[in-house]
């Protein structure tokens, strides 16, 4: 346990700048591609990489369980679902003739404005941040414990929600007699 912890600690703290910047590059790069590319398939694939990068972030931030969960569910479930959607509704790609560029430009401007506001807030608001602590090693146990104690209600509600969504989605795409 101790060596595990030490390795993990060293892993986190020794190469964080490089790791952080590399993951950031991955995430933001594939994120940009996912957001801005013309082809939807390319966007889906780069989303894959973005999600992986997010998992890396979670590791850096000390929750490996979340990283794995991310990969399994987000990548392995949601992304696959998106892929299904793409494939089911595939059509010959139409280059939209009219409003591509200026629409992206407009959207980009709005988002940039919002980003500017956010950035300004981030860098000027005095966040109440505590001293840097070592994250817990092996966080499965605490998560499991918290799920059934502190976060019991959200846990149950989430389960209900899942059920509802399943049923609802199934209902929405049922075959209709035409």
């Amino acid at each position: 346990m101790n060596t595990d912890t030490a390795i993990q600690t060293v892993a986190i703290w020794q190469g964080p700048n490089i790791a952080f910047w590399m993951i950031t590059l991955l995430v933001l790069g594939s994120g940009a591609v996912a957001a801005l590319s013309r082809s939807i398939v390319v966007a889906a694939f780069s989303l894959f990489f973005t999600l992986l990068g997010m998992a890396g972030y979670y590791v850096l931030l000390g929750s490996s369980f979340l990283a794995v969960t991310q990969v399994i569910i987000y990548v392995g479930g949601i992304l696959v679902l998106l892929m299904f959607g793409i494939l089911l509704t595939a059509r010959p790609m139409q280059r939209d003739p009219k409003d591509t560029h200026w629409l992206y430009l407009l959207a980009g401007t709005l988002s940039a404005a919002l980003f500017v506001v956010l950035a300004h807030l981030i860098w000027t608001v005095p966040w109440r941040a505590g001293p840097i602590q070592n994250p817990p090693v092996g966080d499965v146990r605490p998560i499991g414990h918290a799920l059934l104690t502190t976060y019991l209600l959200p846990f149950e509600v989430a389960g209900m929600t899942l059920l509802l969504c399943l049923v609802g989605a199934a209902y929405l795409v049922r075959r209709r007699e035409r």
């Binding site: 996912a34 980009g108 709005l110 988002s111 980003f115 956010l118």
Partner: peptide
């Protein structure tokens, strides 16, 4: 924040 802006653009 950057990721959020990109997502919003998309």
């Amino acid at each position: 924040a950057i990721l959020f802006a990109l997502g919003l653009t998309a």
